[in-house]
Structure formats: C-alpha cells, structure tokens
Simulated scan of single mutants.
Amino acid sequence: MKKLNLLYLFILNLLLISCGSNSGKKKSDFSLFTETEKNEFQLGESVQLKIRNIKNRQIDSAALYFQEKYITSSKGEPSLQLQLQNFKLGNHVARAIVFSEGETDTITLPVKIYNNIPPTVYTYRIINTYPHDQTAYTQGLEFYRDTLYESTGQYGSSTLRKTNFETGEVLQQAELADKYFGEGLSILNDKIYQLTWNEGEGLIYDVTTLERQGSFKFNNSKEGWGLCNDGHQFYKSDGTEKIWILNGKTLVEETFIQPTTHRSVSTQLNELEWVEGMIYANTYQKDGVAIINPENGAIEGLINFQGLREKVTQHANLDVLNGIAYNPNTKKLYVTGKNWDKLFEVEIVER
C-alpha cells in the first residue's frame, strides 16, 4: 500500500509540473511562417517572418531568435525581419517567443540557407609521384614540422605512423587495439589526436614517441571520420551534414558548421585538411574535394580528382581517394587513397 501511495504521489507531481510548463501545454495558438511561404533561402536574402494567430488572441509582442542570437522584436501583430547576413549556412531553426494575455508561447520554423555563389571548379596537375604503402588503408594524413603522419583503419590492423613521404618508408608505428577502427588524425602542440570510427573515442599520443597519453570522448557526434585543426581548435567530420568544432583544450564539440553550396547541404565528408585558412574535405567514395569556409560552411570550391585512381596499381583491395596533406612550410599539397601504392604531389588548377 505504501508503494502504491508513493507511486500515486510521483505521478501527481509529474502532472503538476507538466501543467505549469509551456512544454506540457496543448498545441500553440500561434505558428510562424514566411511571407512567401517558403523556407529555403540564399545568403544575403531578407526574410519576412509573420505570426499566424490561430485563435485570434491578443498579441502584446514577439521576439525573434536565430542561431542562438536575438534578432529583433515587434509589438502588436508582429512582422519580424530576418536579414541573412553573417550566418552559418545549412539547416537551422528560427524561434519566436510570443507574449500574449499574460502567457508566452515559443514557436519555431525550419530555415535552410544556401550559399549565394556557386563553388569554383578546379582540376589538378601532378607535380611529383612518391611511393606509398599499398597495405595502408589511409584514413588521415597530415604534415607536422615537415614529417608526414598517417592514420590507417580496419579492425585488427589500424595504425598510427610516422613516414618518410619521399621513400614511403614507415619510420615509426603504433598499433591500435583490435577493438579500434582508426580514422582521421590531426596534430596540435606536439600531441597527435586520432579518431576512431564507431567507438565514440579519440586517442592522444606524443608526437615524438607515438606513445599513448590519453583519450577523449565524442560528446555530440556518434562517429569519427576526419580531423584537422587551425592552430587553435579542431574540426571533425562524422559522416553527417555537420563538421563539429572542438575546443582545442577540452576537446568538447562546442558547435558545428554545415558544408553547403548554392543548392545543397553536403554529407559524407571524410578526410579533412586545413589549407591556408580553408578546410579541404573529400567526399567518401567520390573523386571530389570540397574547399570549405570554416566561418559559415560555404563550399567555395570543388576539386575534381577524377582519373587519379587509375594512375595507381590496380589490385583487389584498391579503394577510394582518401588522404589530403598540406605542408605549410613548402606550400605543397599531397593526396593518396585507401590501399594506393602512390602519393601524389599536386597543383590545383582552376578549370
């Protein structure tokens, strides 16, 4: 009987809390819509948002928020203007708080923002060709102080390597436990950060010895794909439309950008590389590399690497393009692929 009474009190408390909360109320008497009845726009457009008053209640005022910023407010039957300048691209939600008859209602509207300029299209020119370990299932590639580091994948054979890129020789290697599938890597302040695929964990190493020093968890994303850094913070892909931005000290995924062209939001972005203020990202199982503005996610360029895979030895385990490395000291760019026996120094040429 005591247990029954306690259960009754618990349910009653839940009902009371729900009734006093906006989230527990019936469907709102208001809705948010655009003057043109569309929700896809391009950067730079002005969007006129209005509130549909379903029950003809008196509206005292309304406030508009977008991408965690207060935008504007209006009194009476409000019309709220949203100027799409200096915002991140992709899929977002406009939120309005309506003040009416002593109550507040929060209403939302999905808003998709495309870039207002098509990406510039590039091709490539091969400058040099170097040997590369054909058994390496390349997941991450990055220069640090003129030395090339590589992360390889596959359960039971994932590694972290320090290599001589001119000869293909593996100078040093650390093997991952069989439970890990190695993914992208990036190096900051003498530490190597290597992602794992489905384990929700990143691994930390000393850049000189390749000894494990710790690990970190993925707090928002479920998977690890590609990783790069700008000298202060990390950028991490996870196969979705998001590139997560990680705090360089805590490694917490604090926010994200969505790589977007003038007509679509991209997914399946894999290996990442920081190149002169931009993020280079290859699309998994494709021959293209996107050049992404890290501030708003705009895809400002597309590099077509079609035909490069045909220039390596063809064999049963040959896989897709994956591996971008930029040496900031020499200003040279290198690409390879999974189980490719060649590393290419390339020059990017506008088509």
Rank of each mutant, 00 (worst) to 15 (best):
S237P: 10
K249H: 10
L251T: 04
K222D: 13
I279W: 03
K242A: 03
W197G: 06
Y205K: 08
E199Q: 15
N229L: 06
W274P: 05
I245V: 14
I257R: 04
N293M: 05
S266I: 08
L269R: 03
G200M: 07
I243G: 07
N219Q: 07
G231W: 01
A281G: 13
G200F: 08
L185C: 12
N293R: 06
T255Y: 01
G301I: 09
G288C: 11
K242V: 02
I187S: 06
N247D: 15
H232R: 09
E199D: 14
K222A: 12
W197H: 13
G224K: 14
T250D: 03
K191H: 12
F181T: 09
S221M: 10
N293T: 03
N296Q: 08
Q258C: 01
G226F: 06
D190R: 14
I245K: 13
E241C: 02
Q233F: 03
Q258Y: 00
L227K: 09
A290E: 13
G182C: 09
C228L: 02
E199I: 06
Y193Q: 08
Y205E: 07
E223D: 14
A298V: 07
Q268R: 13
L302V: 15
A281P: 04
F216I: 06
E254R: 06
L188W: 01
V252Q: 13
G200R: 15
I192Q: 12
E276N: 14
G226N: 12
L185F: 10
I245F: 02
F218P: 10
T208G: 02
T267R: 13
K286T: 14
N247H: 13
K217C: 03
A290S: 12
E183V: 08
T250N: 04
L195T: 12
Q233P: 02
T283K: 15
Q258W: 02
V289L: 09
N198I: 01
T283W: 00
T240A: 04
E241M: 02
T267F: 00
G214Y: 09
I187E: 07
L269Q: 08
P294W: 11
F181P: 07
E241R: 05
D230I: 07
T267P: 00
P294G: 12
L251H: 05
V252E: 11
I292H: 00
F216R: 10
E254T: 11
G200S: 13
F181I: 05
K242D: 05
F181A: 06
G214S: 10
H262R: 00
R263M: 02
N198M: 06
Q285G: 02
G200N: 14
N293Q: 10
G200P: 04
T240G: 04
F181S: 08
V252M: 02
N219D: 15
Q285V: 06
K286C: 05
N220A: 12
E300T: 15
E273V: 08
